[in-house]
C-alpha cells in the first residue's frame, strides 16, 4: 500500500508544481501592479502589512492610464480608445466567426450537397498555407481596398475560423439526421432547424469556438500594428507595446498595471466559459 501512496504523492507533486508554474507569472504581475516603484524594481516580495508598511498602490492603474496619453480628438484617455477598439474588434470577430462556422458546419453535416467531404477537406487544407506567406499581400490589399487604418481591416479578414468549422462539424455530426426529418414534418426549414435545435444542442462547441477566437483576436498584435496608423485606431496589445517602448518601459509597476488591465477581461471571460470549453474540446475529440 505504501508504494502506491508514494506514487500518487509524486503525481500530485508534479501536477502542483506545473500548475504553480502556470499561474505564478500571472500572480507576480498582479502583485507588482500594486507595488511602489522602489518595491517593484527591487522585487520586494511583500511590501504590504504585516511584513512591510506600504499601502496597496491602486493609483498605479490610474497613473498608467494617464501616462499612456490623451486622445486629443475626443478628449478621453487613449487607453479608453485602445480598450474600446479591442472590444469592438474582438466582439465583431467572435460573432462573425461563430456565425460563419455554424452555417458552414451545418451545410457540411445536415445538407445534401455534391462533394461534401471534398469541400470539407479543401477547407481543412487551407491551414497548410502559413499566415506569414499571406501577410504582406493582405497588407497591400488593405491599401488597395482603402481599408487601411479602419475597423474593416481589423475584422473582415478574421471572420472565418477553420478550427471553428472543424469543431462544430464534429459536434453537429453527433446530432441525428432523423431529428431534421422530424422537424421537417413539423414544417421547419433548414434555418429554423439549425437555430432552434442544432445550435442549442451544440453550446460547448460554440462557446469553445467563441473563447478561442476571442483569445486570438484580443491577442492579435502584428496585424493591427501593420494596418493601423493613428493612435486612436490602435488596439490594447499595440497600445501596451507602445507603452513599453515609451514612458512605461522604465516604470515597471505602471507597466504591470497596464498589462493587468489588458489581461483581466480575457481571464474573466475564460473563467465564465471554461466549463463549456473543456467539454467542447473533450467531447468533440480533436483527435487529429
Amino acid at each position: 500500500m505504501a508504494k502506491i501512496n508514494w506514487k500518487r504523492a509524486l503525481i500530485y507533486a508534479v501536477l502542483i508544481l506545473g500548475a504553480t508554474a502556470s499561474v505564478l507569472p500571472f500572480v507576480y504581475m498582479l502583485m507588482t501592479s500594486v507595488k511602489t516603484y522602489g518595491s517593484a524594481t527591487t522585487n520586494n516580495f511583500w511590501p504590504w502589512p504585516p511584513l512591510g508598511d506600504e499601502p496597496l498602490q491602486w493609483n498605479n492603474f490610474t497613473e498608467a492610464i494617464t501616462t499612456a496619453g490623451m486622445d486629443k480628438a475626443w478628449n478621453i484617455p487613449l487607453f479608453v480608445r485602445y480598450f474600446a477598439n479591442s472590444v469592438i474588434v474582438s466582439v465583431i470577430t467572435v460573432v462573425g466567426t461563430v456565425l460563419t462556422s455554424i452555417l458552414a458546419a451545418y451545410a457540411l453535416t445536415h445538407m445534401n450537397l455534391p462533394g461534401r467531404n471534398l469541400v470539407f477537406l479543401l477547407i481543412l487544407a487551407t491551414i497548410m498555407v502559413p499566415n506569414d506567406l499571406t501577410l504582406v499581400p493582405k497588407v497591400v490589399m488593405m491599401f488597395n481596398l482603402q481599408w487601411y487604418n479602419t475597423y474593416l481591416a481589423l475584422t473582415v479578414p478574421f471572420l472565418v475560423s477553420v478550427f471553428g468549422i472543424f469543431l462544430m462539424r464534429q459536434f453537429f455530426l453527433q446530432i441525428p439526421r432523423d431529428l431534421f426529418d422530424a422537424a421537417c414534418i413539423d414544417g421547419a426549414g433548414h434555418l429554423r432547424f439549425l437555430f432552434t435545435i442544432v445550435v442549442p444542442l451544440s453550446k460547448p462547441a460554440i462557446v469553445t469556438t467563441a473563447l478561442l477566437n476571442f483569445i486570438w483576436a484580443w491577442d492579435n498584435f502584428k496585424w493591427p500594428l501593420l494596418v493601423t496608423r493613428d493612435s486612436n485606431m490602435r488596439v490594447l496589445a499595440v497600445g501596451l507595446q507602445q507603452f513599453l517602448q515609451g514612458e512605461g518601459g522604465t516604470k515597471v509597476q505602471l507597466m504591470m498595471a497596464f498589462a493587468t488591465m489588458v489581461v483581466i477581461p480575457i481571464v474573466v471571460f475564460y473563467f465564465f466559459t471554461q466549463k463549456y470549453f473543456t467539454e467542447g474540446v473533450i467531447t468533440t475529440g480533436i483527435k487529429g
Binding site: S22, V23, P25, F26, M29, F221, L240, V262, V263
Partner: peptide
C-alpha cells in the same frame, strides 16, 4: 490552471 498561460495575451505575459 494549465490552460491559463494560453489565455493571457502573449504581449502581456512576455513583458512579465
Amino acid at each position: 490552471i494549465y490552460f491559463m498561460p494560453h489565455v493571457i495575451s502573449a504581449v502581456a505575459s512576455a513583458i512579465v
